[in-house]
Simulated scan of single mutants.
Amino acid sequence: MSAVDKLHKLYSSTLEPIVFARSVGLEVLNELDTVKAALMMDAGGSRSTRSGWEWDLLARGVEGIATGMSDIAKRTD
């Protein structure tokens, strides 16, 4: 219920910086398939059956993105 309350507060705000941050955050999340998949698996699973492999998958995805961005930055120097 706490998460739902926080989402309600986030989406009921009309302050421009919050609306901007919320929109950018959703766009970024939508582009990161690994993160999105891990969040969906976590949201749908029960705590007693979770093994943690989802977060390992998420970590590998984030590491891959960081490595790719580092490689791109090296090429542009």
Score class of each variant (00 low, 15 high):
residue 44 G to K: 08
residue 76 T to R: 10
residue 24 V to Y: 04
residue 24 V to M: 07
residue 19 V to R: 10
residue 27 E to D: 05
residue 56 D to S: 11
residue 58 L to W: 01
residue 13 S to K: 14
residue 61 G to T: 06
residue 13 S to T: 15
residue 38 A to W: 00
residue 19 V to N: 10
residue 26 L to K: 05
residue 49 T to R: 02
residue 10 L to S: 12
residue 34 T to G: 01
residue 43 A to S: 09
residue 27 E to V: 01
residue 18 I to L: 10
residue 60 R to P: 01
residue 56 D to M: 10
residue 44 G to Y: 04
residue 20 F to R: 11
residue 45 G to Y: 02
residue 46 S to K: 11
residue 77 D to K: 14
residue 76 T to I: 14
residue 68 G to E: 14
residue 77 D to A: 13
residue 49 T to E: 06
residue 65 I to G: 03
residue 63 E to L: 11
residue 62 V to N: 03
residue 55 W to A: 05
residue 31 E to G: 09
residue 10 L to P: 06
residue 16 E to L: 14
residue 50 R to K: 14
residue 5 D to A: 15
residue 63 E to V: 06
residue 76 T to M: 08
residue 9 K to A: 15
residue 39 L to I: 05
residue 33 D to Y: 05
residue 52 G to R: 09
residue 36 K to Y: 02
residue 38 A to Q: 00
residue 21 A to L: 13
residue 3 A to L: 06
residue 64 G to L: 06
residue 60 R to H: 11
residue 59 A to S: 09
residue 62 V to D: 03
residue 77 D to I: 12
residue 13 S to Y: 13
residue 65 I to A: 11
residue 36 K to N: 07
residue 19 V to F: 08
residue 40 M to C: 01
residue 60 R to L: 10
residue 7 L to E: 05
residue 61 G to V: 03
residue 58 L to F: 07
residue 4 V to W: 08
residue 63 E to G: 06
residue 77 D to T: 13
residue 53 W to I: 02
residue 33 D to K: 11
residue 31 E to S: 14
residue 12 S to E: 09
residue 7 L to V: 06
residue 3 A to K: 04
residue 53 W to C: 02
residue 54 E to F: 02
residue 59 A to R: 05
residue 57 L to P: 01
residue 2 S to P: 09
residue 57 L to F: 13
residue 26 L to W: 02
residue 33 D to L: 07
residue 24 V to Q: 05
residue 57 L to A: 11
residue 66 A to N: 12
residue 72 I to F: 12
